[in-house]
Write a protein that binds this DNA or RNA. Structure first.
Lengths: 349, 349
DNA sequence: CTGTTAGCGCCTTCAA
DNA sequence: TTGAAGGCGCTAACAG
């Protein structure tokens, strides 16, 4: 049915070994012979048998990219960039980079890791915030260590570093610093009663951004009522909508709201609108990440810009081994404060 | 280094065949034996060697999902839904479903198909509009036929049917009907000068939505100035922004704009705002797809809702063979007109 | 219900 | 520069 290496060899009148050599390119073969082999490959429409090849060579050309929620452009942009970088990579065999969506489920994260381990993946890129649950972190750490032990390159992108030396490289977002600058901006505008719509409690991303917020408040001597002004939710617009209503219930005099990310911020804006409050006239709103639509929102969203595409592409090159790991294996990726129309001075009640 | 089946067999004091049988589950094994084997697997931290397994069984547990642009939630939602459905599927071996982002490039589409063929993928789901270029369509058709011939299940999701019988199932979006209903809605509101921001010329999705638009105009006797009121672009907000400026240049008296999709529509709204025009006071705007943020836009976007999640999940089940193919192999997925605040009657000049 | 026996298709020494 | 030979780790008959 399907042509095999042996078929190609027979047609080109060479040994299977020779065919293998021209296909893998990493071995001297006479030009005429190569020509003949390639023609045979073409005529037979031969496609290498990946499993057989991987088995014999004890390596595979699969690279897995784990994301928490592929419907969220935050992950879509990073993962797409990583794939593009891997697709462009020059190498003997072309790598097959694939995106795996965990949906935020720790079990599926582990399942995917196991599946990739089963395929003897060449590399694994894990993106986005990690779950803080110690048991799960330990399980993931152990899995990654095992993968690394088997020769799989591990790259963390937008995720905090892991202890141990099994990780090839980590690109960590400066969520703390970004969160701090954002809140400093609001304080600078004169805001004193600032609500915070945080992400899921158990995510590192959530904690770090919140820590930055807290630090800014503390530095300004405003940390007293902090806890009452923080509501946790998920990373979607619905969560932002509901959380703002809750915040308003707790403190009607709120003049600003910082959201876990841009999507949540847009939900927050919608809730404020529905309550008859104007943004930023009555309440200022800020997001995080700067997704493409944030600049077009009405009003345009003040946020912290994370270079998602660049980070994803770099993660891809790192996974390929096409770029040296940063010193110490860890690079911090900083965010840039984007001040737009959704934040302004507080209303002078 | 890594434990093998034989290691497990030795430790459990059974033959390798028995271990294989308990691992694959599809064969009777005594409870006590199974117990012993599973314990050994656990103690050795054994993970099946995928390539070896695939080679021996001549099948793999890989399922590929091709998308045009994973940074676009249109694809993210469908792909995520498909993965979720596949992850939930009950089967002997757990399937590894992976997303491959072509970035809209025909070469990468073919490359990914070849790579998946090399891995002897169990199934391939191809999502989104196809390129109209005959040469490329033929190449894709041939690739898919080959894959199908090798036993790979082929599912098309949000893509028009392909000639031949190599495709297992097709879920086609009714872009024509949706486009038509949308424009009929605008005509019903009293609009006569309607601009159209189309997607890339060479995509089926673009053509079908535009055909629906044209049909509605023709039925109302308004098709005369059509061509002058159509501008093509890509599927991003930038394109919508620029296209609207061009349309306005051509016809300042435009009272409505239909966009290729929601993202483009939002770009269009931004351009109108920047020109000092209000939506829908001066110009009505409509999109297509109904992404999550469209309901929150200001004003909320009138659009045609495509059930992306449901379609993606169904494609996943189809790829798994967990659901029978629709009669004739083709199911049409209809869109629902969502009338919201971005469309209203034309200004009474 | 379990063990034995052949390969699956390719890569990779080792020779020539 | 090329060929021959062995084995990668697993599955699938075939016996028993």
């Amino acid at each position: 049915m399907t042509a095999t290496l042996a078929d190609v060899a027979a047609r080109a009148q060479v040994s299977p070994a020779t065919v293998s050599r021209v296909l893998n390119g990493n071995y001297p073969v006479a030009a005429a012979t190569r020509e003949r082999v390639l023609r045979a490959v073409d005529e037979l429409d031969y496609v290498l048998n990946g499993p057989a090849s991987s088995l014999a060579a004890a390596t595979s050309d699969l690279i897995g990219i784990l994301v928490n929620d592929i419907a969220d452009p935050f992950f879509g942009i990073m993962a797409g960039a990583a794939q593009a970088a891997i697709g462009e990579g020059r190498g003997a065999r072309e790598k097959l980079s694939v995106i795996c969506n965990t949906g935020g489920s720790p079990e599926r994260e582990l399942t995917y890791l196991t599946l990739l381990q089963r395929q003897r993946a060449a590399a694994v890129i894990v993106t986005g915030g990690a779950l803080e649950d110690p048991a799960h972190q330990a399980a993931v750490g152990a899995k990654l260590a095992r993968l690394a032990g088997a020769g799989t390159r591990i790259v963390l992108c937008g995720r905090p570093p892991l202890p141990g030396d099994s990780v090839t490289a980590t690109l960590a977002f400066d969520n703390r610093g970004g969160g701090r600058r954002l809140t400093e901006h609001l304080i600078g505008l004169g805001h004193r009663r600032i609500g915070y719509v945080a992400g899921p409690t158990e995510r590192t991303t959530t904690r770090h951004r919140l820590e930055g917020h807290r630090a800014a408040l503390a530095a300004a001597g405003l940390a007293n009522a902090l806890d009452a002004r923080v509501v946790h939710g998920s990373y979607d617009r619905r969560s932002g909508y509901d959380a703002v209503l809750e915040l308003l219930r707790r403190e009607p005099e709120l003049t600003a709201v910082v959201a876990a990310n841009d999507t949540v911020a847009l939900g927050a804006c919608a809730a404020l609108r529905d309550r008859g409050l104007s943004v930023p006239g009555d309440v200022s709103v800020a997001g995080f990440v700067d997704l493409p639509f944030s600049a077009d929102a009405v009003p345009a969203l003040t946020t912290v810009r994370l270079p998602l595409y660049e980070a994803g592409a770099r993660a891809g090159r790192l996974a390929l081994g096409a770029e040296p790991a940063p010193p110490g294996g860890i690079a911090t990726v900083h965010g840039e404060l984007m001040v737009r129309a959704s934040t302004a001075g507080p209303r002078t009640a």
